[in-house]
Nucleic acid binder design. Structure first.
Lengths: 202, 202
DNA sequence: CGCTCTATTGACATTGCTGTTAGTTACATC
DNA sequence: GATGTAACTAACAGCAATGTCAATAGAGCG
């Protein structure tokens, strides 16, 4: 019986951080904020929690990096939607789907809820640019650079974002209560969109 | 120098639970879920955490009771909105305001986010009746008992609830990003409401 | 007043998470 | 192959939250 010597894996700092963030995100989405602890993430990765502290400085450092990573993903998803909006001739449903997907699939909905509950609103700041970009992209597409249209489109984006966020978090139980199918929220929001460009906001 | 003997206050079980729940709710809204601990709540009330365990059984018992209390309040707020809808001739803005207030003031928004992040969806169950009551109340008011109208109104309620929930959580930062005033969300939602009764959902 | 019931306390044990430190090992470079 | 850097580990200490238990004391009741 020979002594099994476990071969130790050595990652680059970037690899280590990346793997940890992927794992931490999965934990956040599956088990909530309380399940993303140093020990839990370290165990998942087959390392010790001390090593995570080595890479992120502290537990708060890991959480902060996770927020940053997820916010960046949300930002990128919105930017992609903007780019497609500027080039393709996507229907309004396309845009709505893009925003809803960004909040649902990337876990941005749960992320934002976590941030708000903790009170760290500053982490949401990088989203500002993307959100405003969305307004301008729609404005350019419609070819109406007036001040009035910007205000109107801002409220449209506000409306889409609120709905997408809500759907990502409480959509499933709420739709279940109301006997609505899985696509109901997107359909409703997309259906209401034309009224924003047609009429002036009261 | 006489020995100061601290006079011990003795509450009825109902008083104790009530005070604890009020305090726990304030903590949840101000500092997030992590700030509602046995010790913190007990300190606020001038008692020991052991006494809280005596009344609620465990920390989880306190959290569960808090969720129950807040869900009940949300349910009542919705019922009040329903009652007013059945008697008064409230404008659509009234209804929207009632739902938005229910999510914002009572803290139902943060509560729901907390429940979803923890994964305890069962706690939301008592809301089902109120939500469905809302659909039927609107339907009665419009005097159209058809199946089609119910489906349409369900999607309207879904849409209002998602928006109200979103506004309660990320409304403030999002409106700030978009240069929208405090009432923007309510105004937009109320403005879109007429389109639900007028047209058939695509 | 004496008695009972139980809300309440204080002290202790336990557990899980965070953070520190000294030492170990993988890997790149010479 | 020798060497240095730093990724990594093991063991420990500290802390905060939860939970247990025996003892205390407020309030109603005879």
């Amino acid at each position: 019986m020979s002594i099994e010597r476990v071969r130790r894996r050595r990652r680059t700092p970037e690899e280590a951080r990346q793997e940890a963030l992927v794992c931490a995100r999965a934990r956040l989405l599956a088990g909530g904020p309380d399940s993303v602890t140093l020990k839990a993430v370290a165990d998942d990765l087959g390392m010790t929690h001390a090593n995570l502290i080595h890479h992120f400085g502290s537990a708060e450092g890991l959480q902060s990096a996770l927020m940053g990573s997820m916010v960046a993903d949300l930002s990128n998803a919105l930017d992609t939607a903007i780019a497609r909006l500027r080039t393709d001739d996507g229907a309004p449903l396309e845009l709505v789907n893009a925003v809803f997907d960004a909040f649902a699939e990337g876990g941005a909905g749960k992320l934002a809820a976590w941030i708000v509950l903790k009170g760290d609103l500053s982490h949401l700041e990088p989203v500002r640019a993307a959100v405003n970009g969305l307004v301008h992209a729609i404005q350019d597409k419609l070819g109406d650079p007036s001040e009035a249209s910007q205000i109107r489109l801002s409220s449209a984006v506000l409306f889409i974002a609120l709905s997408a966020f809500g759907e990502a978090l409480i959509g499933e139980p709420l739709r279940d209560m109301l006997d609505q199918d899985e696509d109901a929220s997107r359909r409703v929001v997309a259906g209401l969109l034309p009224y924003f460009v047609a009429r002036s906001e009261r």
